[in-house]
Design a protein around this nucleic acid. Sequence first.
DNA 1: ATTAAAATTGTATTTATTACAAAGTTGTTT
DNA 2: AAACAACTTTGTAATAAATACAATTTTAAT
Lengths: 141, 141
Amino acid sequence: MKTHIVDRLQAHDIKPSAQRIAILEYLMENYTHPTADTIFNHLYPSMPTLSKTTVYNTLKLLAQQGAINEITIDEKNVRYDADISPHAHFRCKYCGSMFDLPIKRLPSVVTEKIDGFMITDTQLYYRGYCKKCKAIVPWLC
Amino acid sequence: MKTHIVDRLQAHDIKPSAQRIAILEYLMENYTHPTADTIFNHLYPSMPTLSKTTVYNTLKLLAQQGAINEITIDEKNVRYDADISPHAHFRCKYCGSMFDLPIKRLPSVVTEKIDGFMITDTQLYYRGYCKKCKAIVPWLC
DNA sequence: ATTAAAATTGTATTTATTACAAAGTTGTTT
DNA sequence: AAACAACTTTGTAATAAATACAATTTTAAT
């Protein structure tokens, strides 16, 4: 039943290992944009030999190979997203909650400036205040 | 001659002080997306009482008030940009160089999802390999 | 079974950023 | 001009994310 996870790893030239499968599986089942620390804390109980370094290494590898996305909308720590289809992110500056936002199409670059460049990753971030926080703290507006 | 800097501070409800003026002035004269540390190191020689905490505090205040933008394309540290007009950023994953990219128009959100939200900041990031690095390290492609 | 290569682990370190209390500055009121 | 409150800056200490690295374990190949 974990074949789709193994498949995804192999499709991105990553050899499957118990740790890599567990980490990617967590990301594919929890689209919550977790941090490395959060992932470690969730996996540790069922995988007590897991090391935080492995989590960091694996996430970096997965992102490098394009199997997952690095989200840097939160200036405190990097977050990870197994949804690599084009979409934007919103983050509330008051409560910190994050949402995926559908986008009609990926914004196109004015190509002259980056002719000959290779774009591997496009990220669209919206920051502001969510409905709830806007209501709670009206002085923000 | 520094009236435009003072004006910009006041336009964003920030009381001008020697430190605030120096920091915003540096950002308005150096569109290099510097880090807090870089700004501190450049200003320190001519302002030896300056403290790094002040640089951090001031940059946070300036960003909060919308006088400058926080750029989080570099997962290592936050960078700052006094150009608050709509534009995108590119960062080379090999050499770390950053470029501004003009955009035709700010990408529009699918509004249903964020109805009642307040968007204060939109950031569009492109990551990849610049022309130079693509040539030097062809195995990247 | 032996060995080489690759992956994981744990600890120690680095480094960006924040917390906080003390000191300094500014502007205002008498 | 002295007193005072409000605001700003400073320096040090603390926090916390991420990395370096050497040792150990696992995997794959001969």
